[in-house]
Structure formats: structure tokens, C-alpha cells
Design a protein around this nucleic acid. Sequence first.
DNA 1: GTCTATAAAGAGATAGAC
DNA 2: GTCTATCTCTTTATAGAC
Lengths: 188, 188
Amino acid sequence: MSDRLPPRAERRRRTEERILGAARALFAELGFERTTIRAVARAAEVDPALVMQYFGSKQELFRLAARVAPPPAAGLDADELVGHLLGTLDTKIGALSQGSLAMMRSMLTHPEAAAAAREVLGRQIDSLAASIPGDDARLRAALMTVVMLGVTVGHQLLELEELRTAPQEEIARLLRPSLRALTGQEVS
Amino acid sequence: MSDRLPPRAERRRRTEERILGAARALFAELGFERTTIRAVARAAEVDPALVMQYFGSKQELFRLAARVAPPPAAGLDADELVGHLLGTLDTKIGALSQGSLAMMRSMLTHPEAAAAAREVLGRQIDSLAASIPGDDARLRAALMTVVMLGVTVGHQLLELEELRTAPQEEIARLLRPSLRALTGQEVS
DNA sequence: GTCTATAAAGAGATAGAC
DNA sequence: GTCTATCTCTTTATAGAC
């Protein structure tokens, strides 16, 4: 145990992180089924057996790679709400986190990804519903959530030409009144 | 060649149709990768080799099973447009055609399904854009399309609780102003 | 025409050498 | 600790018996 950076643990941590990064990228691009342990290992420049050694199974590797950050806190009014949702359209550089993309890519075909998606979307619905008045707040919140889901799927995963080439602000500008309508507020 | 229903051709046609039906159901539920020729054959009560004999490959079977009806013609005003879109929310009985569901289930993970989805959505965008005025008609049409996509994915494929339990008319009622806003019309 | 048997390929996972 | 080699399983697809 030298008291410089301990090469053992530190190197291991970095290798794990490199593998996870490669896994995120491949899962996000290809989905669970078409991504192989071998391909992840190749991309991370390690031996396939090492991936298994570190993560135990492909399933577990996916579980860690597709982990998604919890949505930011709630307690906003309707205007702030819409602004925040539109802000998540960070088409800009890194787009969505690779982890979220990995989860979304497989959410229609992989049971565990589907469960994760339902949970994340459910939390977003809870969060939005808390800021919307009325009996139908939950349904409105669910619709706002799937509207954003549709835009994200169309843009990031299907890469529809019309959305890919439009500036983010333009999309946000057109979407804002549409989301506002779902909050049940009158047009201000 | 008797001149009653020729048993040969007719029986073959029916068997093909039974296989296609089973394939649609399984592809719609599980997606391309997790659906096996064996499972399709079992569901259709035929021999796996027969499926291959009739359709040549799993790819070709999917191509036929995931064929989707072309969208109905255009030429409507904005109001009719929104009404028509909301009408396609046929949550009622058969939901969407099994073929469309099969295509959508795999659109994020199967290259051919993705291409088919882009084509179908592209045609819908064309159709909608023709009825919307303004320079940004195509972007507006694309947003309307992905909004409906998000609702359908959330409802039919992810089966989000809030959408599953809501009556179709309620969803349509809340969604209408939101879609209207995307057409660029003033609220009437 | 229909099915049995099998070929061929690719995957995840594991045991043991170094 | 890392990798070589392999095991085992499952799949699509095919060839040939009946």
C-alpha cells in the first residue's frame, strides 16, 4: 500500500468506468439484445472475461449502464413547470445522458428496461401532478409526460429529419403553448 | 381441379393467414428479437419448418406481419385534422392494428422496423403539413405526429397506469387544445 | 407437401492456466 | 488479477426422409 494513488483500486475503478461508458454507448445505440459482451469489451479495450468478472452478467451490466438520474425536485407553478420540461429538451451537445438513452432504447422490448421506464415516468407524473390543480391532474401530468416522451423518441431515437434539423428553441417555442394547454391554465 | 373451393390453395391460404396472425401477436408483444419462429409455429399449431417453407426467413415473416395500413387521405382543415388524429386513439377494442403494434414495438431496436416507422411517420407528417399554413408547417406537423406517437407508446406499449385507466374520450378532451395549439390556429 | 434431424453460427457464462 | 480456451445453450436455416 503506497500512499500515492493506490494503483490497484484506482486502476480497477477506472477500468470499470471505461467498461460502463462503452456499455452505455452501445446499449443506447443498439439496445439490449443486439449489444454483446464481446462488443462492449472490444470498445472498452479489455478482455470479454473481465467484463463478466466485474459485472457478473449482461443483465447486471445493463442495470448499471441504464441507471438514470432522478428528476429534479418539484414545487413549481405551471409556468415554471413547462419551462423546466422544455429545458430538458437539451438537444444541444450531449443530448440526454447516455444512461437515459440506453434505458429508453430498450424500453419497448426488454422487460427490465420497461419496468425502469415506467418507474421513471411515474415519478415524473407524480412530480408534475403535484403542481397541477383539478381532479384530472394526474391524467394531465401523464399526457405532458408522454408528449415529452414522444418528442424525445422522435428526436433522439428515431432521428426524424424534421426534428433533427430544427433548432431546439424553435421546438420549444412551438411546444410551449401545447404543454401550457395541458396544464389547464388559460393562455396568459 | 374440382370446381368447389380447391382444398389445396384454400387450405394453404388459411394456414398462411393463421401463421401471420400468430406472428403479428407475438411480434407485437415481444418484439423482433425475443420472438422465435418456434413460438410462432407453436401458436399457429404448425411445424416450425412449415413457417420457414412458407415465408423463407424470420426477417421476411416480420416484414409481412408488421405491414401497416397507409394513413387515410388528407385535405382537411385544422379542426378536422385534430379530430381525425384524436379518432385514431382507438383505445376501444382492438386498439391499433396488430401490424402497427408489431412495427412500433420493434422500431427502437430493429433497423428494418425503424426504417418502416420513419416512413410511416414521414407520410403522416407530409399529410398533416399539407393542411397547416405557415413556414413552420412541417415542424408543427412533425410535433403533432410525435405527440400522438408518445401517447400511443405510453398507452399501448408501456401501458402507463394513468392512460390505461382513463376513458378514451377524456384523453381526447384534454389533448384537443394541445393539438390545436400546434396547428397554429387561435383557440376558437 | 409435411416433418425429422441436423447443420452452422453466435451468444453468455465458466474453469483453470499464467 | 487477467486472459485463454471451452462449455452449453439457443437460435435460424436446410437437407432429405416419408
